[in-house]
Amino acid sequence: MIRFAPTVRSAVILATIAFGSNAMAGETTVAVAANFTAAAQEIGTAFQNATDHSVTFTFGSTGQLYTQITQAAPFDVFLAADQVRPELAETDGFAVPGSRFTYAEGQLVLWSADPAAIDGTAKVLESPALTHVAIANPATAPYGAAAVEVLQALNLYDALLPKLVEGKSISQTHQFVATGNAQVGFVALSQVIKDDSGSDWLVPAAMYKPIRQDAVLLKMAEGNEAAAAFIDFLQGPEARAIIESYGYRVGE
């Protein structure tokens, strides 16, 4: 038995190196809707600089992430692209009651990788040369549902129906347009705001129901200090400035 002692000792040393660098620092895992990817990464860096905690992000479509949450995925915080899933998480008992709040309001933009395609209006949608218009899946992605609302408001939905191609998430929709496979597509302003290469039409907010994105603290996070700190940080001025810089509106 004595022979094992050095092994045990080195295991303890290794464990100390791996997990024990700072007794106060915690870790949290945050599930993030695809459209918020870039903003979340910047907020994550700011959060880790401001606190001793570390944060890991998992990105996906809101529907996919929610399905994983119902199957006990190890997420502490859920940043959804809509209000429906966080609400559902509360009523179905996956979230801490009363922890839900709107962290951002998304803006829809019609975007093309071709700088000459869109003249700042919706006119391109009436062009007969258009073969594909990319939208996110309206059943799962709020930006997709908003895109359908806009097309209906423009009385173009029926005419464009055969030309619509669906991305599984708003990231895939962006990818369809960025690769030129679809000439234009409805994406989140956050995805293209730091990209000057294409052309776009910022859809007037009055044309679609507000895309309020809610966050919620999940049951998994109970007692996790880092998760609570992240929620606080997300509502603070620094995070809000980052969120706004990505083309979201922040409330109040």
């Binding site: 529907g63 996919q64 399905t67 990319a134 059943a139 669906e166």
Partner: peptide, 20 residues
């Protein structure tokens, strides 16, 4: 691109049902 009747196949449809 998940177009019903043209490119939306079974596996994609299952994924959609799970997501919704």
């Amino acid at each position: 691109g998940g177009i019903p009747g043209r490119t939306k196949v079974l596996s994609v449809q299952i994924f959609d049902y799970v997501e919704t």
